[in-house]
Design a protein around this nucleic acid. Structure first.
Lengths: 220, 220
DNA sequence: ACCTGAACACCGTTCAAGT
DNA sequence: ACCTGAACACCGTTCAAGT
């Protein structure tokens, strides 16, 4: 119970990541975070500027986990590896895509932008011009973030295996859907029990990359 | 100032959509919404169950705006039209993708799911099996939502033309980026001024659809 | 049937005061 | 240098009371 060392920024961020992992973004409040650290809420402001600073710090840490792809790989493979690395890191910590999407975090650091730099480098190497790179980057990053955000939320996505909450939600969909009004969706929902979100993401990513290869300007 | 007719659900939803359009999701509070309607916050509960009910109603209305694609069109074209329709409707009302991503809305109505049903129908027609449809649907819907959420937020996306806020943010990126550490990203940021988010989305969508066509099981 | 005021349990953040 | 208590301006929602 006795605190020898004082708090510091890193400890705050670690506790924030843990709390967000348990309670989600809406459960991550300055007051609850302080309580988890055995301190009053106002003490946190000695180590971070405000809540956005915490979310920036978290996003930064998580994006820094993404291992850079081997530069010797062909560009399409580098995109695959980097996008998957982003997906995995962000999916381990869904607070991050959520706080980025809601504009509560905005980590403009080298570490955080490194994975994007890798994607951009691969796309330039593929032969796209500035506009093409911007569009293709929007496609890849949009797919990564959209897949995570939709699979974290309940809308329009199959459940993860063992994820009871999502499973129930999917079942409720199946119950509420009028098969006459939504015949195809009904077929999909009844025919799809356990699915692995990451496997589904990789499949969608491979489809996008196949399209990128087909759109490469330099191909004959 | 004198209110003749009493409030009703539709009026509440209309006002909520307008308020969210002006102030964003974080500006849409029960108290502010009530004030905009010239009423006390607690009156709203006579017409909607709670805030989630409002967000469901909003999402429902906006998704119902998506016009169904002509069933006579080839499957790839139907996907293109429907996905673009979703993008346009959701982009006019960014509260909707935001409240879906944060799980505050969950509209499981026929109207809201109709566009997804169209996508699923087109994918079955293309020849995908259940898993393939689920994966391809995840790709298309992930791209739609991710593109909107990233373009609405400031992270990793070029600014819309005339969108001062984003423009400034992009400029700040350009200022803060270390060209030696993020050479490719730096090249992209300095070489990209005005871009149209919708045009970029369509381009990314076409790339994904090209990949879908190439992945179709029934092709020779 | 519809609206309201007071209240409860929360937020992020500031500021003056403590050690 | 770090922590705290009280306060301010907010939230969503409940409940009893008004018309």
């Amino acid at each position: 119970m006795v605190r020898r060392e004082p708090l510091n920024r890193e400890k705050v961020l670690t506790a924030a990541l843990a709390l967000a992992g348990e309670e989600g973004l809406e459960g991550l409040s300055m007051r609850r975070l302080a309580k988890a650290l055995g301190v009053e809420a106002m003490s946190l402001y000695n180590h971070v500027a405000n809540k956005s600073d915490i979310l920036d710090g978290i996003a930064n840490r998580v994006l820094a986990e993404v291992r850079p792809a081997d530069p010797a790989l062909p560009w399409a493979e580098r995109i695959r590896v980097t996008a998957l690395g982003m997906y995995q890191a962000l999916r381990r910590h869904p607070v991050v895509p959520l706080s980025l999407a809601t504009d509560q975090a905005n980590p403009a650091t080298t570490q955080a932008l490194r994975p994007l730099d890798d994607l951009v480098g691969a796309l330039y190497e593929a032969g796209f011009d500035d506009a093409g790179v911007r569009q293709a980057l929007g496609g890849v990053s949009g797919l990564v973030f959209g897949s995570i955000l939709l699979s974290t939320a309940g809308f329009a996505r199959p459940p993860a295996p063992g994820d009871v909450e999502h499973h129930e939600q999917w079942d409720e969909y199946a119950r509420r859907i009028d098969p006459d009004e939504l015949p195809h969706f009904n077929r999909l929902v009844t025919g799809n029990r356990d699915a692995d979100p990451e496997e589904d993401f990789v499949r969608a990513l491979d489809i996008l990359i196949a399209g990128l290869i087909a759109s490469t300007p330099s191909r004959t």
